[in-house]
Design a protein around this nucleic acid. Structure first.
Lengths: 119, 119
DNA sequence: ACAATAACTAACAAAATTGTGAGCTATAAA
DNA sequence: TTTATAGCTCACAATTTTGTTAGTTATTGT
């Protein structure tokens, strides 16, 4: 899937090495990721709930994004005991929770930005 | 270039409307953008200096990114008077400067993240 | 037996971002 | 007059991300 030797990949690695800012940006900067993390923090923490909350996301895309966030240790997938059909709940790790105050700041910045442009 | 009626565009608009967090993320989350803003804040504020600092970026890509940041009113392009060949200097707007403390936080988060993964 | 629900997955296609190669303008120094 | 520097722009191609369609498993309720 990913070509390790494309300029694209080389540039990605270059930026990651240059500054951890770029590492973080590549995690939170992809579509849906920040919104999913925020939604989970608000209690929208199950597959079908996220599907309702984000009506335009397909199941395959949601599944993919959750899997990536899990691999990045930002969320943990837990099985709800004694549930049928089997229930899954996603919770934030402490690393995931550390993002929430940052999101607050980014959001504030975004609001003042939107004021100028969307109106 | 951009298809206004693709699901991709519709989803983008949906997320922007849902929360300004997603507006901001779409600005700072594209390749090179955050690094360029940070570099300019450090005095690497001319076209050729940025080219040196980021050896893997092509002139066309750098030019494109600067133009977008200018349109977003994050940087301002100023002509250096009485310079030959004509010199250009990029400076951050106050909106651009407001990003710097946020970048600090994101960077800190990225560092602790990298500790777990890159080593 | 059949539909419904939760939570996926695989193969594929479309769209968007990112990068390439060549060329341009203007000025000045060698 | 050729070369160098600063700062670009164009048309195009490669790569990556994002979205689509059609399934699957397992269990419960009807």
């Amino acid at each position: 899937m990913r070509k390790e030797n494309s300029t694209n990949s080389i540039n990605e690695r270059y930026l990651h090495k240059k500054c951890a800012l770029n590492v973080a940006i590549d995690i939170i900067g992809v579509r849906w990721a920040s919104q999913i993390i925020f939604s989970i923090s608000q209690g929208v923490n199950r597959f079908h709930l996220l599907k309702e909350e984000l009506p335009n996301i397909s199941e395959q895309v949601l599944s993919r994004k959750l899997k990536i966030l899990e691999k990045q240790k930002i969320i943990i997938k837990t099985i709800i005991p004694d549930s049928t059909p089997i229930g899954v709940r996603y919770i934030l790790t402490s690393r995931g929770e550390d993002l929430l105050p940052i999101f607050e700041n980014i959001c504030e910045w975004g609001k003042s930005y939107s004021l100028d442009f969307e109106n």
